[in-house]
Deep mutational scan, measured.
Amino acid sequence: LEELEQFARTFKQRRIKLGFTQGDVGLAMGKLYGNDFSQTTISRFEALNLSFKNMCKLKPLLEKWLNDAE
């Protein structure tokens, strides 16, 4: 759980530094990986307001997006 919290904080910082909005991330993930995510989902991930199971599902996709975006 602590690792997920740390990743969520780091993800938000890096996303902002790269100049992407939460909506940009959701749209890009849909185009790149075929998984559409709303701005609300990205927001809830960053705020740790998703279930642990959903956080675990999203983490690898967000890590991949972040690596591809950098």
Results as ranks from 00 to 15, higher is better:
residue 27 L to D: 12
residue 25 V to H: 00
residue 37 F to Q: 09
residue 51 S to T: 13
residue 59 K to T: 05
residue 64 K to M: 07
residue 9 R to F: 08
residue 44 R to A: 15
residue 69 A to W: 06
residue 5 E to H: 15
residue 7 F to I: 02
residue 52 F to W: 12
residue 13 Q to E: 15
residue 9 R to V: 06
residue 41 T to Y: 08
residue 56 C to Q: 15
residue 57 K to Q: 12
residue 11 F to Q: 00
residue 69 A to E: 14
residue 62 L to D: 00
residue 45 F to Y: 05
residue 51 S to Y: 02
residue 29 M to L: 15
residue 45 F to G: 00
residue 29 M to G: 01
residue 18 L to E: 03
residue 8 A to Y: 00
residue 51 S to N: 11
residue 32 L to Q: 15
residue 16 I to N: 13
residue 53 K to F: 10
residue 56 C to S: 11
residue 50 L to C: 08
residue 60 P to E: 06
residue 14 R to M: 09
residue 19 G to N: 12
residue 70 E to Q: 08
residue 12 K to G: 02
residue 36 D to Y: 14
residue 61 L to G: 07
residue 57 K to V: 07
residue 69 A to I: 14
residue 48 L to Y: 03
residue 5 E to S: 08
residue 49 N to P: 01
residue 28 A to F: 11
residue 20 F to Y: 06
residue 58 L to D: 02
residue 52 F to R: 14
residue 64 K to F: 04
residue 45 F to V: 02
residue 45 F to K: 00
residue 47 A to I: 11
residue 20 F to S: 04
residue 24 D to T: 04
residue 27 L to F: 11
residue 55 M to F: 06
residue 62 L to F: 09
residue 57 K to R: 09
residue 7 F to S: 03
residue 20 F to K: 13
residue 48 L to E: 14
residue 23 G to Q: 08
residue 39 Q to M: 12
residue 42 I to E: 01
residue 41 T to C: 15
residue 9 R to L: 08
residue 3 E to R: 05
residue 38 S to F: 04
residue 16 I to Y: 04
residue 40 T to R: 12
residue 33 Y to L: 12
residue 39 Q to N: 03
residue 47 A to E: 15
residue 17 K to E: 08
residue 54 N to C: 04
residue 15 R to F: 00
residue 40 T to V: 15
residue 9 R to K: 13
residue 49 N to E: 15
residue 68 D to F: 15
residue 68 D to K: 12
residue 49 N to H: 12
residue 61 L to N: 13
residue 57 K to L: 08
residue 41 T to F: 06
residue 43 S to Q: 15
residue 51 S to F: 01
residue 25 V to D: 01
residue 35 N to S: 08
residue 36 D to I: 09
residue 20 F to A: 13
residue 27 L to E: 09
residue 7 F to T: 03
residue 7 F to M: 04
residue 21 T to Y: 01
residue 50 L to I: 11
residue 26 G to M: 06
residue 23 G to K: 14
residue 35 N to L: 11
residue 4 L to M: 11
residue 68 D to G: 09
residue 5 E to V: 10
residue 64 K to S: 08
residue 64 K to N: 04
residue 51 S to D: 15
residue 16 I to V: 11
residue 14 R to Q: 08
residue 3 E to F: 04
residue 13 Q to L: 11
residue 28 A to N: 07
residue 68 D to I: 04
residue 14 R to C: 06
residue 1 L to N: 14
residue 50 L to Y: 05
residue 29 M to C: 08
residue 66 L to D: 02
residue 65 W to Q: 01
residue 1 L to F: 11
residue 49 N to A: 12
residue 38 S to L: 05
residue 24 D to M: 06
residue 6 Q to D: 13
residue 60 P to G: 12
residue 6 Q to P: 05
residue 41 T to R: 04
residue 28 A to T: 14
residue 32 L to E: 13
residue 33 Y to D: 11
residue 55 M to P: 01
residue 11 F to L: 04
residue 35 N to Y: 13
residue 10 T to L: 12
residue 68 D to H: 04
residue 47 A to W: 03
residue 15 R to K: 00
residue 7 F to Q: 01
residue 17 K to V: 09
residue 54 N to P: 03
residue 5 E to K: 15
residue 22 Q to V: 09
residue 56 C to F: 11
residue 48 L to A: 15
residue 60 P to D: 08
residue 46 E to C: 00
residue 38 S to E: 12
residue 52 F to Q: 07
residue 11 F to I: 03
residue 69 A to K: 07
residue 11 F to A: 05
residue 14 R to V: 06
residue 32 L to M: 12
residue 19 G to E: 03
residue 43 S to F: 04
residue 32 L to V: 07
residue 32 L to N: 05
residue 4 L to R: 02
residue 26 G to E: 12
residue 43 S to N: 10
residue 7 F to L: 03
residue 46 E to R: 00
residue 28 A to E: 15
residue 20 F to R: 08
residue 64 K to A: 15
residue 6 Q to H: 03
residue 39 Q to R: 12
residue 5 E to P: 02
residue 43 S to C: 05
residue 10 T to I: 10
residue 58 L to F: 13
residue 36 D to G: 09
residue 15 R to N: 01
residue 40 T to P: 08
residue 5 E to N: 04
residue 5 E to F: 04
residue 44 R to I: 00
residue 24 D to G: 06
residue 45 F to R: 00
residue 68 D to A: 06
residue 15 R to V: 01
residue 12 K to S: 12
residue 21 T to S: 10
residue 59 K to D: 00
residue 41 T to G: 04
residue 48 L to G: 11
residue 39 Q to W: 07
residue 57 K to P: 02
residue 22 Q to L: 12
residue 3 E to I: 08
residue 43 S to H: 11
residue 65 W to D: 02
residue 46 E to W: 00
residue 16 I to Q: 12
residue 48 L to W: 05
residue 70 E to A: 10
residue 45 F to S: 00
residue 28 A to M: 10
residue 43 S to K: 15
residue 54 N to W: 08
residue 39 Q to V: 13
residue 42 I to L: 08
residue 23 G to E: 11
residue 58 L to C: 09
residue 43 S to T: 10
residue 48 L to N: 12
residue 44 R to S: 15
residue 40 T to A: 10
residue 18 L to I: 07
residue 55 M to V: 05
residue 7 F to K: 01
residue 24 D to S: 07
residue 33 Y to E: 08
residue 3 E to S: 10
residue 59 K to A: 07
residue 40 T to Y: 14
residue 60 P to H: 04
residue 20 F to W: 09
residue 2 E to Q: 05
residue 3 E to D: 07
residue 30 G to E: 06
residue 36 D to S: 10
residue 40 T to M: 09
residue 41 T to W: 12
residue 2 E to Y: 06
residue 30 G to K: 08
residue 27 L to V: 14
residue 29 M to D: 03
residue 44 R to D: 09
residue 52 F to I: 11
residue 43 S to M: 12
residue 35 N to C: 11
residue 18 L to G: 05
residue 19 G to C: 02
residue 9 R to D: 08
residue 35 N to K: 08
residue 34 G to A: 08
residue 38 S to V: 08
residue 57 K to T: 14
residue 31 K to T: 11
residue 21 T to H: 03
residue 21 T to R: 05
residue 44 R to L: 12
residue 26 G to P: 03
residue 30 G to Y: 10
residue 11 F to Y: 01
residue 6 Q to G: 10
residue 30 G to D: 09
residue 69 A to D: 03
residue 27 L to I: 08
residue 37 F to S: 03
residue 68 D to R: 12
residue 53 K to H: 14
residue 62 L to Y: 08
residue 64 K to L: 10
residue 54 N to D: 15
residue 39 Q to Y: 15
residue 24 D to E: 07
residue 10 T to Q: 14
residue 25 V to E: 00
residue 18 L to W: 04
residue 15 R to D: 00
residue 22 Q to I: 06
residue 37 F to K: 02
residue 2 E to N: 15
residue 46 E to V: 01
residue 30 G to S: 15
residue 25 V to I: 07
residue 55 M to D: 02
residue 51 S to E: 14
residue 32 L to K: 14
residue 28 A to K: 12
residue 33 Y to T: 12
residue 29 M to I: 04
residue 66 L to K: 00
residue 35 N to M: 10
residue 39 Q to D: 14
residue 61 L to A: 10
residue 47 A to M: 11
residue 42 I to S: 01
residue 44 R to H: 05
residue 58 L to M: 13
residue 14 R to Y: 05
residue 35 N to H: 06
residue 57 K to I: 05
residue 26 G to I: 05
residue 42 I to V: 11
residue 39 Q to I: 12
residue 47 A to G: 13
residue 53 K to V: 12
residue 33 Y to Q: 08
residue 53 K to L: 12
residue 10 T to C: 08
residue 8 A to D: 01
residue 44 R to N: 02
residue 37 F to I: 15
residue 24 D to W: 03
residue 59 K to H: 07
residue 56 C to Y: 04
residue 33 Y to C: 10
residue 44 R to K: 14
residue 11 F to S: 03
residue 60 P to S: 08
residue 17 K to H: 04
residue 19 G to S: 06
residue 57 K to S: 09
residue 12 K to E: 05
residue 26 G to F: 04
residue 68 D to Y: 08
residue 52 F to D: 09
residue 24 D to I: 01
residue 55 M to T: 04
residue 39 Q to G: 11
residue 7 F to Y: 04
residue 55 M to R: 02
residue 28 A to V: 13
residue 26 G to D: 15
residue 6 Q to W: 07
residue 18 L to Q: 10
residue 64 K to P: 03
residue 17 K to C: 14
residue 56 C to R: 14
residue 9 R to I: 15
residue 57 K to F: 11
residue 69 A to V: 08
residue 42 I to A: 01
residue 23 G to M: 13
residue 50 L to F: 09
residue 36 D to Q: 10
residue 16 I to L: 10
residue 55 M to A: 12
residue 21 T to V: 02
residue 59 K to C: 05
residue 59 K to G: 08
residue 9 R to N: 09
residue 66 L to M: 11
residue 50 L to S: 05
residue 26 G to S: 10
residue 20 F to I: 07
residue 32 L to G: 08
residue 9 R to Q: 05
residue 48 L to C: 15
residue 51 S to A: 06
residue 59 K to V: 11
residue 58 L to H: 04
residue 39 Q to A: 11
residue 61 L to M: 11
residue 47 A to F: 05
residue 4 L to Q: 04
residue 54 N to K: 12
residue 55 M to W: 03
residue 58 L to E: 02
residue 62 L to Q: 01
residue 26 G to K: 06
residue 41 T to E: 11
residue 50 L to N: 02
residue 16 I to C: 05
residue 44 R to E: 15
residue 8 A to H: 01
residue 23 G to D: 09
residue 34 G to D: 09
residue 13 Q to K: 11
residue 15 R to C: 01
residue 34 G to W: 04
residue 51 S to K: 12
residue 32 L to C: 08
residue 60 P to M: 04
residue 4 L to D: 01
residue 11 F to N: 00
residue 55 M to C: 02
residue 15 R to P: 00
residue 36 D to H: 13
residue 8 A to E: 01
residue 9 R to P: 02
residue 31 K to C: 10
residue 1 L to S: 11
residue 24 D to A: 08
residue 15 R to W: 00
residue 42 I to Y: 02
residue 35 N to D: 07
residue 39 Q to F: 12
residue 13 Q to I: 11
residue 37 F to N: 03
residue 7 F to W: 07
residue 4 L to T: 06
residue 37 F to L: 10
residue 40 T to F: 11
residue 52 F to S: 14
residue 46 E to M: 00
residue 70 E to T: 07
residue 11 F to C: 05
residue 22 Q to T: 10
residue 20 F to G: 01
residue 39 Q to C: 08
residue 7 F to C: 06
residue 37 F to M: 12
residue 5 E to R: 13
residue 17 K to D: 14
residue 1 L to W: 10
residue 21 T to L: 03
residue 21 T to C: 04
residue 62 L to C: 07
residue 69 A to R: 13
residue 34 G to L: 04
residue 48 L to I: 11
residue 29 M to A: 06
residue 54 N to H: 15
residue 40 T to G: 11
residue 58 L to I: 15
residue 55 M to G: 07
residue 31 K to S: 11
residue 16 I to A: 07
residue 66 L to T: 02
residue 20 F to M: 06
residue 14 R to G: 12
residue 33 Y to M: 09
residue 30 G to L: 10
residue 58 L to G: 01
residue 53 K to S: 13
residue 60 P to I: 15
residue 64 K to T: 13
residue 53 K to G: 13
residue 42 I to Q: 02
residue 10 T to D: 14
